[in-house]
């Protein structure tokens, strides 16, 4: 117990734990839609698209996370626009945009001739969360949870039967854009925890693990949210006690959960065959 309570005396650990739990909620709630709609590449694309926004914000002395937010939102809107009415396949747009944004980021970095260490943005540093960051993460999380609760039935129908949703008058293109924007917001919160490169793991791995142990939507969502929060907290403790990278610790905790769920499912399948 002492081992659990001892780090809590530090303000930065308290902020990190709170931030990690909020990130866990926003990322895993959207992760359910990402996994069930089979658009995990979109999360990947959005996380990788943050780079030019970060660099531009750095060049003009602005907030790096705001820069990341603008870049991911722009990418989300472009993916939605390009794949509207299937003019370009969604996965094609998803494949194109991050490479273009990444190239733009690299170009901007080379033009600044700066060697500033951006590893905290790329790999996360949840122990460095400031009070301002915490407020931003909290506001974004409340917004995401609010929209998902209010539009739960529409998002569910959009995922399960897009054409039927359209026939009853739902504008599925708008709904898709809203989902992409929410995804961008959650990615930005995730960047603080696990960094631009690893954030997609928070969206995908816990839901993929939960999908192995339950095939009902509500238990799946609860399991994924709980698992992500536990992994985020465990990652913070690992980082504190062993001096490990917080982002990598969180993602590897998620991977461990996935491994346990995979083993559970395998045993269950073998039992049912006997």
């Amino acid at each position: 117990m002492h081992g659990i309570l001892e780090p809590l005396q530090y303000g930065f650990i308290q902020r990190a734990l709170l931030a990690s739990m909020l990130v866990g909620i926003s990322c895993s709630l959207l992760g359910v839609y990402v996994v069930l709609r089979r658009i995990s590449n979109t999360g990947h694309a959005l996380t990788h698209s943050a780079l030019p926004g970060i660099v531009i914000a750095f060049m003009f002395g602005g907030n790096l996370f705001l820069g990341a937010l603008v870049a991911t939102l722009w990418t989300a809107i472009m993916i939605g626009f390009l794949s509207k009415e299937d003019k370009v396949y969604e996965d094609t747009a998803t494949g194109m945009m991050p490479t273009i944004m990444l190239a733009l980021g690299v170009l901007l970095i080379s033009s600044t001739k700066s060697y500033r260490d951006m590893s905290s943005m790329l790999f996360g540093n949840i122990l460095g969360v400031t009070s301002g960051d915490l407020v931003m993460i909290a506001v974004i999380t409340v917004f995401i949870v609010g929209v998902l609760i209010l539009c739960h039935k529409e998002f569910q129908l959009f995922c399960v039967d897009k054409d039927y949703a359209r026939t009853i008058g739902i504008n599925v293109d708008v709904l898709r854009h809203v989902l992409l924007v929410l995804l961008s917001l959650s990615v930005v919160t995730g960047i603080q925890a696990t960094g631009a490169i690893l954030t997609n793991a928070l969206l995908v791995v816990p839901t993929a693990a939960a999908r192995l142990v339950t095939n009902r939507l509500v238990p799946l969502t609860i399991t994924a949210v709980t698992m992500t929060m536990v992994c985020c907290v465990a990652g913070v403790y690992c980082s504190y006690y062993f001096g490990l990278s917080s982002g990598a610790s969180i993602v590897l905790c998620c991977a461990l959960c996935f491994g346990v769920c995979w083993a559970f499912r395998t045993v269950q399948n073998k039992k049912s065959m006997l």
């Binding site: 069930l36 039935k153 529409e154 569910q156 129908l157 995922c159 399960v160 039967d161 897009k162 054409d163 039927y164 009853i168 008058g169 999908r211 339950t214 095939n215 009902r216 939507l217 799946l220």
Partner: peptide
């Protein structure tokens, strides 16, 4: 149909989506 039959949803829940237009 464009239904994703692998989506974790019960038959009752899918049938209930027929009421959404009135909600």
């Amino acid at each position: 149909s464009s239904v994703d039959w692998q989506f974790p949803l019960s038959v009752l829940d899918l049938v209930l989506t027929g009421r959404y237009v009135y909600l």
